[in-house]
């Protein structure tokens, strides 16, 4: 598995291309990229800051990805997650899955994203015209996470 927590901006296209070329037994690659938006709930966002717990964050994302890989039988998984200050338009997270077949590749990406939303030790702070505020997962995110767990 390729799990990376990084303060550096990354190029999702280049990451996915390198990942796709790593296995000849994969018939499918599915991926998701989450970006920093320039507005939320109708208000402009100037900057997003994501805090990690160094060491623990990487280890926990590896654990979550391992669970998904076992449940879905994926050949390999990749996660790149930004931390630190992020500007609108920049990629925050990339999740990609290699599988022999497409349905399981899609499912692995969807389930791992749901896990990351609620269980990855990361904390987001948005800065807009009214100042900064910490974001917490919504009940909707937790409901998705529970559904993913029931299915797994």
């Amino acid at each position: 598995m390729r799990i990376r927590v990084t303060e550096e901006a990354f190029d999702p296209g280049a990451e996915v291309t390198a990942f796709a070329g790593s296995r000849r037994d994969a018939g499918a690659l599915a991926n998701f990229v989450g970006y920093c938006r320039d507005e939320t709930r109708g208000k402009p966002v100037q900057e997003l800051f994501i805090e990690q717990y160094p060491g623990f964050t990487q280890k926990e994302i590896e654990r979550l990805a391992g669970e998904v890989a076992r449940a879905q039988g994926t050949l390999d998984l990749m996660v790149v997650h930004r931390v630190g200050p992020i500007r609108p338009g920049e990629a925050i997270v990339l999740v990609a899955a290699l599988h022999a077949h497409r349905n399981q590749a899609f499912e692995a990406v969807r389930v791992l994203m749901d896990y990351l939303k609620t269980d990855a030790p990361l904390w987001k702070r948005e800065t807009g015209p009214d100042g900064a505020r910490w974001i917490e997962p919504t009940d909707h995110d937790h409901a998705r996470r529970s559904r993913a767990e029931e299915k797994a």
Binding site: Y53, V93, A120, P121, L122
Partner: peptide
């Protein structure tokens, strides 16, 4: 001490 997480 970890507040509710908000990754992704």
């Amino acid at each position: 001490f970890l507040p509710p997480m908000s990754g992704g």
